[in-house]
C-alpha cells in the first residue's frame, strides 16, 4: 500500500491536493482513500491530509503513522510540534518540502537520513499545494501526465477557468521538473504481527483534580500564541489612502489584531493577525490590500507596485 501524508495550512488547498492525488490514483486503477484531518476550521491553522492507494480493498484508515511520502506545503510547520510533520519519518521515507532553501539545508537542519526534495513554491505560498501534487505524482511513478491533468480538472471544477488553467500549469510544470525523481517513493511493508514491538501501555492513575480538570484559569494566554504564523497572506495598509475613519477595520477584525492610535491611524498586530482578510474586504477607502506572506524573510515594506 502507498501511504502519503500532506501537511499545510488551512487555505493552501491541502484537502484538495489530497483529493487530486486520490482521484488520479483511482483513475490509474488503484483502490484509494483520501481524507483531511483538522481541528479549528480556520485559514492558516495546521492541517494534515492522508492518501492511501493499493491494489486490494483498503482496511486501514485514519492517521498515517508510517508514511512512504510526506509533502510539506509550508516549511514553518516544522516548528509546530502539534502539526506532527516529522512523525514516522524513517530512513526510507521521501520528504518533499515547498521552500526557497536547498534540500541539503533541510537535511542538515532536520538530521534526517531519508531522501529530501525541495522546490521553490514561487511568490505565493498559497499556491504551493498544486505544485506539490504535480511533483508528488511524478515521484510516485504510477500516475501518467494526462491522468494527473484530468484529476486536477475534476477536483477544481468549481474554480474559474483562469484559476483552473494556472493550477494545471503549475502542477504539470512540477510534474515535468521532477522527471528525474520518478519512482523515488517505495512502499513500506505492513506492520508484522510476528515480531512487533509491544505498545508501552501504562495503567492510568488518578491525578489531583487541580490538574485533572480541563481548565484554563487565565484570560490572556492567547497573547502567547503567535497565530500570525498561520497567515498565507497578509493585509497591508496603504496609509496614503487610509481615511483614518478609525473604527471599521479595527471593529470588524475577528481577532482584535488592529489597534488604533490616538491620531486614528490603524496598526496591524502581525503577531496575531491570522490573515482572514476581513479588513481588506470591509475597508471603505480600499486602502488595505492582500499580499503573499513571505516565509523566513522580512515583511514587505509596502504593497508590490506601490511606492513605500
Amino acid at each position: 500500500m502507498l501511504r502519503i501524508r500532506l501537511h499545510g495550512r488551512g487555505g493552501q488547498g491541502i484537502r484538495t491536493a489530497a483529493q487530486i492525488l486520490g482521484s488520479a490514483l483511482f483513475a490509474e486503477g488503484f483502490e484509494v482513500q483520501d481524507a483531511p484531518r483538522y481541528g479549528a476550521e480556520r485559514r492558516g491553522a495546521p492541517i494534515v491530509a492522508y492518501v492511501r492507494a493499493a491494489h486490494a480493498p483498503i482496511d486501514e484508515r485514519g492517521t498515517i503513522a508510517n508514511p512512504d511520502l510526506v509533502l510539506v506545503a509550508d516549511a514553518s510547520l516544522f516548528q509546530v510540534p502539534t502539526a506532527g510533520v516529522l512523525q514516522g519519518i524513517g530512513a526510507r521515507v521521501a520528504l518533499l518540502i515547498a521552500t526557497t532553501e536547498d534540500a541539503a539545508v533541510w537535511r542538515a537542519r532536520l538530521a534526517l537520513a531519508g531522501p529530501i526534495f525541495s522546490f521553490d513554491p514561487g511568490a505565493d505560498p498559497a499556491h504551493a499545494a498544486t505544485a506539490l501534487v504535480g511533483a508528488a505524482a511524478r515521484m510516485l511513478g504510477v500516475i501518467r501526465r494526462e491522468i494527473l491533468g484530468a484529476a486536477l480538472g475534476e477536483e477544481l471544477r468549481g474554480l474559474d477557468v483562469h484559476k483552473q488553467r494556472s493550477s494545471l500549469m503549475r502542477a504539470l510544470e512540477a510534474y515535468d521538473a521532477f522527471g528525474v525523481h520518478g519512482g523515488a517513493v517505495g512502499e513500506a511493508a505492513d506492520a508484522s504481527a510476528r515480531d512487533y514491538t509491544a505498545p508501552q501501555w501504562i495503567d492510568m492513575f488518578l491525578d489531583p483534580v487541580s490538574i485533572a480538570a480541563p481548565d484554563l484559569h487565565a484570560s490572556a494566554t492567547s497573547v502567547q500564541v503567535r497565530t500570525g504564523a498561520w497567515r498565507t497572506r497578509r493585509p497591508v495598509i496603504d496609509y496614503a489612502h487610509c481615511h483614518r475613519c478609525s473604527w471599521i477595520c479595527s471593529t470588524l477584525c475577528p481577532d482584535s489584531a488592529i489597534a488604533v492610535d490616538a491620531d486614528r491611524t490603524p496598526r496591524i498586530d502581525y503577531d496575531h493577525c491570522k490573515g482572514c482578510m476581513v479588513c481588506v474586504t470591509v475597508c471603505p477607502a480600499h486602502a488595505i490590500s492582500a499580499a503573499p506572506e513571505p516565509r523566513g524573510e522580512s515583511p514587505p515594506a509596502a504593497l508590490p507596485g506601490v511606492a513605500a
Binding site: E60, R61, G62, S192, A193, R194
Partner: peptide, 16 residues
C-alpha cells in the same frame, strides 16, 4: 469504522 483496522490486524495475525 476502526473495526476495518481490526480486519487488517486479523489478516496480519493470521499470517503470523
Amino acid at each position: 469504522a476502526f473495526s476495518t483496522r481490526a480486519r487488517a490486524a486479523v489478516d496480519r495475525l493470521r499470517e503470523a
